[in-house]
Design a protein around this nucleic acid. Structure first.
Lengths: 95, 95
DNA sequence: ATATTAATTAGATATTCGCCTAATTATTTA
DNA sequence: TAAATAATTAGGCGAATATCTAATTAATAT
């Protein structure tokens, strides 16, 4: 849980997560989205992986990254502890 | 939103939020819960306030702190963007 | 086999963070 | 008004963080 909070406390990492909503992407494709060197992105991916917010699977010389439910669950769980004390706007139903 | 993510990326601050679930407390009462100097707690309270995760109202020489829905909402909103891509366990109904 | 491409690891550096002690502000009480 | 109490602000310091360049590893293609 510690790791998840740490991971989302950075704009770039949050943007990487946003980007991955579109679906799995390899490290190069991710790096291209940002005005930042590949090593830096690589480091961010590592932290996101440690937090289990993303998964990494190697396919040849590429590594495909995708969102991992697990990390989000740990944040969600923490949040639930407070949600009971507030009323949050329910997401609109999509017809 | 930036401020909220930053604020919850610290154990002490998360514990302060937990403590405030019990209801409003003044700075001294909060500080007593932690093995840390008052100035340090004061600083944590400041960050939580900046993130609108807590409110502060002065009552005489005391300052009463309480949870503020606003900051939690900003986190919730961010989270919702991902919740639609995963299925999260619904909290058990309390009878 | 060699060169190319994808990605990470290593090492350096500037900035931010969390904590402390000391000093300050503001309020209440004697 | 002076002393005591509640809390913050100021300043300093070591640890953690984000970024970069250079070097390394691993896989593909010529």
């Amino acid at each position: 849980m510690e790791a998840a909070f740490k991971a989302i406390n950075d704009v770039t990492r949050r943007e990487i997560l946003q980007f991955l909503i579109q679906g799995p992407q390899n490290a190069g494709q991710i790096a291209k989205q940002f005005d930042m060197t590949k090593p830096s992105i690589s480091h961010h991916l590592d932290l996101l992986k440690q937090a289990q917010l993303i998964d990494a699977v190697k396919k040849g010389q590429f590594i495909h990254y995708s969102l991992n439910k697990k990390g989000f669950e740990s944040i969600h769980q923490w949040f639930q502890g407070f949600a009971q004390h507030f009323e949050f706007p329910k997401p609109k139903i999509r017809l």
